[in-house]
Amino acid sequence: MAIYLTRESKVLVQGMTGAEGMRHTRRMLAAGTDVVGGVNPRKAGRTVDFDGRAMPVFGSVHDARETTGADVSVLFVPPAFSKDAVMEAADAGIPLAVVITEGIPVHDAVVFQAHARRRGTRVIGPNCPGLITPGQSNAGIIPADITEPGRVGLVSKSGTLTYQLMYELRDIGFSTCVGIGGDPVVGTTHIDCLAAFEADPETELIVLIGEIGGDAEERAATCIAEHVTKPVVAYVAGFTAPEGRTMGHAGAIVSGSSGTARAKKAALEAVGVRVGETPSATARLVRDRLASTDGRLAPG
Rank of each mutant, 00 (worst) to 15 (best):
V185H: 00
M28K: 00
R53E: 14
M87W: 01
L131M: 14
I209L: 14
L12V: 08
E88Y: 01
H115A: 15
N40I: 06
I3A: 10
R7M: 11
A237V: 06
R284V: 07
G276A: 14
I94C: 06
H107G: 09
S158D: 05
A116V: 00
M55V: 13
S158H: 04
A89T: 11
R122Q: 15
A19S: 15
I142T: 04
V286D: 00
A263T: 08
I142C: 00
Q136I: 08
R117H: 11
M28L: 04
V99K: 09
Q164Y: 06
T278N: 13
V273E: 04
L12M: 10
V152Y: 02
V186L: 02
R118E: 15
A281V: 07
R117M: 13
T33H: 08
G120Y: 12
G187L: 04
D215V: 05
A64C: 06
L75P: 05
D145P: 03
G159H: 09
A2D: 00
R151D: 14
T189E: 13
V72S: 08
T68A: 12
I212V: 15
R118Y: 11
H62P: 00
A116F: 00
T17C: 08
H115R: 15
R26L: 06
V228K: 07
R7Y: 12
A199W: 06
L268R: 11
R287N: 09
A196L: 13
H249M: 10
G38D: 04
I104E: 00
E204I: 01
P56I: 03
D200Q: 02
A241L: 04
A241I: 02
D84N: 11
R7D: 14
V228E: 08
D288M: 07
N40S: 13
R42N: 15
I142D: 01
S255A: 07
I3R: 05
G248S: 01
